[in-house]
Design a protein around this nucleic acid. Structure first.
Lengths: 207, 207, 207, 207
DNA sequence: TATGAATGAGGGTTCATTCAT
DNA sequence: CATGAATGAACCCTCATTCAT
């Protein structure tokens, strides 16, 4: 017989993919259980209800994504600000374009933004805010001179916006620019562009 | 007696707000009809079905948003590239932060990106693509020297991303930076920042 | 402007075909009005309600069918019993296989038998019973010797059953015997067969 | 707790009666579930949808009817053609006039003929066609001399028509001949009449 | 007089959830 | 402990009918 843990794990896997694809509302407990090879009542049994499963998925996916692509990926302690910015951007793009569980994380966040649930606040505090904090340090480091809170914040927005654009507008991008690829080499180019573009922007903003 | 057009208009208003808030799937015709003060069968009578109403809402909102905040708002024919970029960015932010029908347009697009329906392709072709084309002209104008298609495209992504960030990540922004306001003066500041940031970025990218 | 009578007539035509095809329940007032080029409210205006239209159609179709194919079609006053039986059978088959209004009559009766409405009793009294009476005279004429009421009745059943089989089981016949045609020549053959078959049957039954 | 099978069985019973009475379209799942003492969602749970239940009913009723009144009921292997014809006719009449599930079968077929659904073809192939095949053997056996395909077919039509008349025109018969009973003894008489009538007819047709 | 916008009851179906086993 | 049959609310949609014009 399959253990509790195994069933829960399979449920999390199946739910992650389906929630990421369809969003919370459109996903059905039935489909999740079917894909997980579990009983229709398994969700309620293991996670209380659909929402409980959803929260568990969010938690699980966040951890998996940040573990696989940490924002400091491959950085030496002596890395320059530019290198750290590139690492941050690259890791974000990698999470977005990963095929598998890490990408679920991005899609789930996107769904949360479009249609927030009670899980959003916790998710932001746990995942979003720390990343922003990291990015803030980098921006302050790259600033031409000590910058005001407001200016730094605007730069953060500019950088994050450039990255998350690929998460939030992907259908439009793929429809208008079908020739745009997102293979590792393409992502590398994109990351470099965003880094250079932002570097110039930051310097201009903190002139 | 209420005329056909009046009822249709009330239905469009109610549906616009509810679709923008909840998305296509989660919105219910019952709630829409209730808010419009119409009978439950009114949607089917006037628009065929829920999808027909949705398409009509999309069309109506797009037109309303672009009419109220055209991307060339207040521009003279002799406007410089920088002025045109500022106008483009400002109009986009105004659409996003408008309270009322024009903002529905942005929210509807956001929902479409997160959970596409059959309307997405048409919406992109009609609204999204032309805006990108306009922005492309501006970017080419601002480039330090003739730029490759790929570089121009990346700059488009960077600019659009910075603007749409406020559409797609608003819940996170408001949670982390509750002190950040979005009154007209704030939007003006944001628009200027994005414009300057992007100007520097474009020049760097086309150096 | 079209007169009342014209609209009523077009409504009857359209309703006849649709009621015959789909039955009373499955037919929709909307479709009938559309085909008749009339307003959605025309049925209620001219015939009270859907049932009223149905009754009018039944009446109109019965008259049209019996007028086009009277059971004594082409008979001389001096016709023999066999000739009169053949004429009766032939007219019944012609009504069933006619393409147009007379066939609606048969289909409507078939639908009434499967799913009786309040119109059935009147229809039977007006159309069905007189025909049976005529057939009874013919059978008594053909009997080898004066027959009991019960025997005559059973012969009536046998003859009618043979004819109406093509009305009530046509889908099955066409599915199992797709090569069986129902052109005029085929109907002539069928009528002759039924007549001869029944003649022998009657004689046997009244031996 | 009630078992799965029990609920399914009750649903089949209730649906059989209601489908037989009203036909597929006019029957409502709400009424079926009410009569079966089941929840409104039970139909979808056990049979997928209304159509699935209908198909199951058709299957179940066909089997029940043919099991209770097989066309070879009480025949010895050495039975004569006349005896086999009588058995065939009698079993058909018994199915039609049975009160209970076997009669549903006849009524369902009648409804299918008047307003075919997707189930008709399968039903014909599985139930109708085999019966016709059996009858064909009998007719060939009874023919005065080897008969053409066309003649045999016409005789089949004549015999089936005489029997099914009581299925398809019962409302008219009962209205015009209220004194005609359909008790077992009456059916026996009818069966004998049809057999004798047909016997004479077949001999005449194959003379 | 004749229209068509509007109605509300009722249709089949889907869903997350519950509970006896 | 884990199941799957059963639930009832809510979904979108269709329908004949009504009523102000």
């Amino acid at each position: 017989m399959r253990t509790n843990l195994e069933t829960q794990q399979r449920l999390l896997e199946a739910a992650g993919e389906i929630f990421a694809t369809r969003g919370f509302r459109a996903a059905t407990v039935r489909e999740i259980c079917q894909r997980a090879g579990a009983n229709i009542a398994a969700v309620n049994y293991h996670f209380g209800d659909k929402e409980g499963l959803y929260f568990a998925v969010l938690k699980s996916c966040s951890e998996a994504a940040l573990k696989k692509y940490p924002p400091t990926l491959g950085l030496k302690p002596t890395a320059t600000g530019e290198e750290r910015l590139l690492a941050f951007v690259r890791s974000l793009l990698l999470r977005i374009f990963d095929e598998g569980r890490p990408s679920w994380h991005s899609k789930l966040i996107a769904h949360e933004m479009a249609e927030p649930t009670k899980a959003l606040a916790a998710l932001i505090d746990k995942v979003y805010a720390p990343a922003l904090k990291q990015l803030e340090m980098i921006v302050r480091d790259l600033a031409s001179r000590p910058a005001s809170v407001a200016v730094v914040r605007q730069c953060l927005f500019s950088i994050l916006g450039q990255c998350l654009y690929f998460q939030n507008s992907r259908p439009a991008i793929q429809h208008i620019h079908p020739e745009q690829g997102f293979a590792p080499a393409d992502l590398e180019r994109l990351a470099k562009h965003i880094t250079q573009f932002s570097l110039a922007g930051i310097r201009q903003a903190t002139k």
